[in-house]
Amino acid sequence: MKKTRLLNPQLSGAIASLGHGQGLTVCDCGLPIGESVERIDLALTHGVPGFLDTLDVVLSETVVEEIIIAKEFIHVSPELYQQFAERIQLLAEEQGAPVKVVQVSHECFKAQSDLSKAVVRTGERTPYANVILKSGVAF
Rank of each mutant, 00 (worst) to 15 (best):
M1V: 11
K2I: 05
K3E: 12
K3Q: 11
K3C: 02
K3H: 13
T4W: 00
R5F: 10
R5K: 11
L6P: 09
L7K: 03
L7W: 09
N8W: 01
N8R: 03
Q10D: 12
Q10P: 10
I15C: 00
A16W: 11
A16M: 00
S17I: 04
G19S: 11
G21R: 06
Q22I: 04
G23F: 10
L24W: 04
L24Y: 02
T25D: 08
T25G: 04
C27R: 06
C29P: 05
C29E: 14
C29N: 12
G30F: 14
G30W: 08
L31F: 12
I33W: 10
I33P: 09
S36K: 15
V37E: 11
R39F: 02
I40T: 08
D41Q: 09
A43M: 15
A43E: 14
T45G: 14
H46R: 14
V48S: 14
P49E: 05
F51K: 05
F51W: 04
D53F: 02
L55P: 06
D56C: 12
D56T: 15
D56S: 15
V57S: 01
V57T: 15
L59D: 03
E61L: 03
T62R: 09
V63Y: 13
E65K: 15
E66N: 12
E66P: 08
E66L: 09
I67P: 04
I68G: 09
I69N: 01
I69F: 08
A70C: 11
K71V: 01
K71H: 15
E72I: 01
F73P: 11
F73Q: 02
I74S: 03
V76I: 15
S77L: 03
P78H: 05
P78A: 00
E79L: 13
Y81A: 10
Y81M: 08
Q83N: 10
Q83E: 13
F84Y: 13
A85Q: 07
E86G: 10
I88F: 01
I88T: 03
L90W: 04
L90S: 13
A92H: 01
E93F: 00
E93R: 10
E94S: 11
Q95I: 09
Q95K: 12
G96V: 05
P98Y: 00
K100T: 14
V104A: 08
E107P: 11
F109A: 04
F109H: 05
F109N: 01
A111E: 15
S113F: 06
S113E: 13
D114A: 15
L115P: 04
K117E: 06
V119P: 05
V120K: 01
R121P: 07
T122E: 07
T122R: 08
T122K: 01
R125H: 11
R125A: 14
T126V: 15
P127D: 00
Y128V: 09
Y128M: 11
V131N: 04
V131T: 08
I132Q: 09
I132G: 06
K134M: 02
K134Q: 10
S135H: 13
G136F: 03
A138D: 13
